[in-house]
């Protein structure tokens, strides 16, 4: 709890410190936290942010351009211009812009959009990508260690971490794979279901750890979108004739109804992954927003008296979010399995 308070307080001060006269802006602070960033900000030390610089990788007209994010000197207002590989780059609200050839500084229109700069393709290792790799390393460590321990014990009895992992794996198999897809076909989908379950879960948990300044990976729509697209591709590729018949020519209903149902089913085909994407993204993001909003109450009211209340509330929400991390991973996995099951279901009329 102390960590939580300290780390979020760090955030708040970061936003309010540079301009002492500027009002504390809770919305900006929250959005800054929830969004991706090009550097891994750890904490502030004597008014200066201590952070991990991450590489910026851009694909510009001149080809691949890379430089360290530290060159921006923590500037996020588009003031610091970095020249690399014949291009001029600025960072504005955690986005990298390339200035047009003859421009020397960023010009803004009235909605604060730059007018003389465009965005190159950005493959930077951002905070989220970095945390994703950390989570992958942790997952690999856990599961490969677990798998090894089976080989070591001759009688196949789980020892060590495998004893903790096995019930979860069996849960995914028996509660998600088997009932949703069916006894005969579930085996093909098990690696995907298991991977997606643990990948989402661990990233949900990492998002809640405050000292990592909560890289909000699973609350980022790019992440959920990618996973939803994977589910969509697998569903579409494994769809059998029965599945397509149910979409284009629903059996067992009169012809006008078939024509009426067809567009609905086609829309449904796309709505399913979209709802997967939105559900995970919005759940996790909303959780983070609520925790941070409760925390920023302290700074909005500029009073220590409010701290116990807001700390207690955000502790409560954090505990709920810990449950939500598992539930959302479960929901994403079980719905994916449900869609696979629908795609592979045999006609039973």
């Amino acid at each position: 709890m102390l960590f939580l308070a300290i780390s979020f307080a760090g955030y708040a001060s970061e936003d309010s410190d540079p301009n002492k006269d500027e009002e504390f802006n809770a919305k900006e602070m929250i959005l800054h936290h929830v969004k991706d960033a090009h550097e891994f900000h750890l904490w502030d030390w004597k008014g200066k942010p201590v952070s991990l610089s991450l590489p910026i990788i851009l694909w510009t007209d001149n080809g691949l351009t890379t430089f360290s994010s530290s060159k921006f000197h923590h500037d996020d207002q588009g003031k610091e211009i970095v020249e690399a590989n014949g291009g001029k780059f600025v960072k504005l609200h955690e986005k990298i812009y390339q200035l047009d050839a003859n421009a020397t500084s960023v010009a803004f229109d009235e909605e604060h959009h730059p007018t003389n700069a465009h965005r190159p393709l950005n493959f930077s290792i951002t905070r989220n990508v970095f945390m994703m790799w950390v989570s992958v390393a942790v997952l690999l460590l856990i599961f490969i260690t677990a798998a090894r321990s089976y080989k070591k014990s001759k009688d196949g009895v789980p020892t060590g971490i495998a004893g903790f992992i096995e019930p979860l794996v069996v849960f995914v198999r028996d509660e998600i794979g088997k009932p949703m897809i069916g006894e005969h076909k579930y085996k093909r989908y098990m690696p995907y279901l298991l991977t997606i379950f643990f990948f989402i879960w661990i990233n949900n948990i990492f998002g809640l750890i405050p000292i990592l300044n909560g890289a909000n990976l699973s609350g980022n729509i790019a992440f959920t979108c990618t996973l939803a697209v994977f589910t969509f591709i697998i569903t579409t590729l494994s769809g059998n004739s029965n599945y397509w018949k149910h979409i284009f020519w629903m059996p067992g209903v009169p012809v006008p109804m078939k024509i009426f149902l067809m567009p609905i089913e086609i829309i449904g085909m796309f709505v399913k992954p979209i709802s997967l994407m939105i559900r995970l993204f919005a759940n996790i993001t909303a959780g983070h927003v609520i925790i941070l909003a409760l925390m920023s109450l302290i700074f909005v009211f500029k009073s220590v008296a409010i701290a116990p209340v807001s700390v207690a509330f955000s502790l409560f929400i954090t505990v709920i979010e810990i449950i939500v991390t598992a539930i959302q991973a479960y929901i994403f996995t079980i719905l994916s399995a449900l869609y696979f099951g629908m795609a592979t279901e045999e006609a039973h009329h």
Binding site: P179, S275, I278, R279, A282, N283, A286, I331, I334, L335
Partner: peptide, 18 residues
């Protein structure tokens, strides 16, 4: 488990609002 799935479906509507 079916209650959780159904809750997820209902929740999706609220999340669209969010």
């Amino acid at each position: 488990s079916s209650a959780l799935i159904l809750a997820a479906f209902v929740e999706a509507v609220a999340l669209f609002g969010v």
